[in-house]
Design a protein around this nucleic acid. Structure first.
Lengths: 204, 204
DNA sequence: CGCTAATGTGGAACACGTTCCAGTGATTCG
DNA sequence: CGAATCACTGGAACGTGTTCCACATTAGCG
């Protein structure tokens, strides 16, 4: 009676396998979301509009993504995966680990500047998410961590102290992004903040 | 035409003076908000409920606070002012500036733990706020900065580098709070993150 | 091929933030 | 005191996220 079988994508791995059609639908929804978000930001991503724009019924949209927040967090995950891919192909070249991390984050930041509305939608969703989205937000967080750890060029299993530093960098990254998106900090200030926090790297 | 006279409290100082009745109303609204938030968090702060609970018509509530976000950010400002007051009376006693800041933030954190729902409502509002609330969010940010600067025991005008450090600490504080509130980080982890970022103090 | 369960469709309905308005005080100024 | 202005009330109305439901389509499976 209760469960209507598994959602088509509970967290990431151990969910229903998704047929081709379903995967295509999912991607279509994410594409529509990106499109709408790139225009009007968070507010423009209206569930009815997403459904229409991706040729899917509202109920179906909600079956794939149980809330607007889930949808936008999934979009962020999508974008981050692309970024991670790009970064793997052309990794940062700076000599100093701290500079590599700062450079990587600034690259990501520049990508956000190109699509500020999209960035707005994704970041607002990320920080507004409550416990019901924690699994998905966690996935995004792991991705971000991976990107930073890669940039640091750490030996595979980083120690707990290094992980703390990475977490603090991630905190600063998110929060600085928010202050920029809400117009309370300039691009230059975000840069300074990122560089400042990267000063934590390579110290004990 | 257009402006319906000044809102009863645009940002902070240069607004309409507010009569006693009005100030009382304002405080009543904030009290009702705190009450409701302390129970059910962000979702429980429903504008109709706030209006009813503070014996004010919905339209009046909106005249005082133009949105739910404004209302919650104002509540946070209120709480922070109280905290600042408390801290001024009993300042941190640690010898090291970094330890003083960490201790101060942990004290604030403990206050949040006592009212997690209230904290949830306020912090979610703070990070969800868009440009239309930037003045109010800025006021909160200035208050937070003041608290941290006080704890550092800095000479009155801190240099730009020190201000960057303070901003990074603030970023970490907000973001760590969010991860705790959404159940993705433990209290211990928040403590570690705060202590880690405080390692930036007293260097350079 | 037909049966059955799972999926998808279209749309109504509901909740809550927000806006608006007509009427009723309350306050101030002449 | 009278009049004008402003604030407050009560409530209707609207938009958007979310839920629900009756029906249609699809996909596997004997």
């Amino acid at each position: 009676m209760g469960q209507k079988t598994a959602d088509p994508r509970a967290a990431s791995a151990p969910a229903a396998p998704l047929t081709q059609r379903q995967e295509a639908r999912r991607l279509g929804i994410l594409a529509a979301t990106t499109r709408l978000a790139s225009r009007g930001g968070f507010d423009a991503v209206q569930m009815r509009a997403v459904a229409e724009s991706s040729n899917v019924a509202l109920g179906t949209l909600y079956r794939y993504f149980p809330s607007k927040i889930h949808l936008l967090v999934a979009t962020m995950q999508d974008q981050l995966e692309q970024l991670h891919e790009t970064l793997r192909k052309r990794p940062p070249t700076e000599a100093d680990p701290a500079a590599r991390v700062a450079g990587t984050l600034m690259r990501a930041f520049r990508a956000m500047q190109r699509e500020p509305h999209l960035a707005d939608a994704m970041v607002r969703a990320l920080t507004f998410a409550d416990r019901s989205v924690s699994a998905e937000v966690d996935a995004v967080s792991r991705l971000t961590t991976a990107i930073i750890v890669d940039a640091m060029g750490l030996p595979v299993p980083p120690g707990p102290e290094q992980l703390s530093v990475v977490r603090v960098i991630e905190h600063t990254w998110h929060s600085a992004l928010i202050t920029w998106l809400s117009g309370r900090a300039s691009i230059a200030q975000v840069k300074i903040d990122i560089e400042t926090v990267c000063g934590l790297i390579g110290r004990r």
